[in-house]
Design a protein around this nucleic acid. Structure first.
Ligand SMILES: [Zn+2]
Ligand SMILES: [Zn+2]
Length: 232
DNA sequence: GCCATCGGACTTTCAACCAA
DNA sequence: TGGTTGAAAGTCCGATGGCC
């Protein structure tokens, strides 16, 4: 497509045009860890699902569903000051900061004051793996997670990038200093679209929704809220 | 086996549309 | 005005071929 500009990566100083990093897995495997970096780091310091005693107010997985490794569902009521910090942490961690749960300001401390329910920083990276793995049923497949903005090197090579800068791929190939966010075009405005079709019956409607990122991006949170009887 | 290249499947984003 | 739609813009899987 026009957006795709295939330029030989070798035009760069070369010795080091980066090859794929950890890209040998099957599509399914890739998707499953899709969140690759996020999950990898998250699983490092989160207790295995179902093994830890559920803390007060912790989410209990419904029958037939399993808590994915590294996942944790904890109601999060940050204090005003903590809220900003948490938001910053979440933003900083992007998709790769699964370990944020180890914050010294653990939001789930007993002293946390209910102010406004927020997404626990540790949960945010997981939200980008949807359908939320626990909701996955036979026939559904995990969607591939994409970074918001690949670095210029990965973009040229059409390879998987990361939210971190320098990204792991650039680091591995010694071109960390060249790792920069690619510049996104501004979307054109004023394009007329004609009238919209209406979606049909329920079945196609539901499959439609299950194919939408907008839906799954929030589904984990909504699902959690629906399944718990706690007051949010 | 390692790596670059790249076609195209797939995902994300967000302005236009539209019903309430 | 908020929710829905759908296409633009983007990511990156995986096939292919060259090189050592
Ligand atoms: Zn990158
Ligand atoms: Zn990079």
């Amino acid at each position: 497509m026009s957006a795709r500009e295939k330029s030989p990566a070798s035009s760069r100083s070369s010795s080091a045009t980066p090859p794929p990093i950890g890209e040998s897995a099957s599509p399914a495997a890739n998707s499953a860890q899709g969140t690759s970096n996020a999950n990898a780091s998250a699983s490092g310091n989160a207790p295995p699902a179902g093994t830890a005693a559920a803390p007060q107010g912790a989410f209990v997985m419904p029958p037939g569903m399993t808590m994915p490794p590294g996942m944790q569902f904890l109601p999060y009521f940050p204090q005003p000051a903590a809220a900003a910090a948490a938001a910053a942490a979440a933003a900083a961690s992007g998709g790769s900061g699964g370990g944020a749960a180890s914050d010294s300001s653990d939001p789930n401390g007993a002293a946390a004051q209910p102010q406004q329910m927020m997404i626990h920083p540790a949960f945010i990276p997981q939200m980008y793996s949807y359908p939320y793995p626990g909701m996955l049923t036979a026939g559904m497949k995990l969607k591939r997670r994409q970074v918001k903005n690949a670095c210029t090197n990965c973009q040229k090579a059409c390879k998987k990038c990361d939210d971190e800068r320098p990204c792991p791929r650039c680091v591995k190939y010694g071109i960390a200093d060249e790792c920069q966010d690619s510049v996104r075009k501004e979307r054109r405005k004023g394009i007329k679209r004609g009238s919209y079709k209406k979606k049909g019956e329920l079945t196609s409607l539901s499959s439609f929704w299950f194919g939408r990122g907008d839906f799954f991006r929030l589904s984990g949170c909504i699902y959690l809220m629906l399944r718990t009887s706690r007051r949010w």
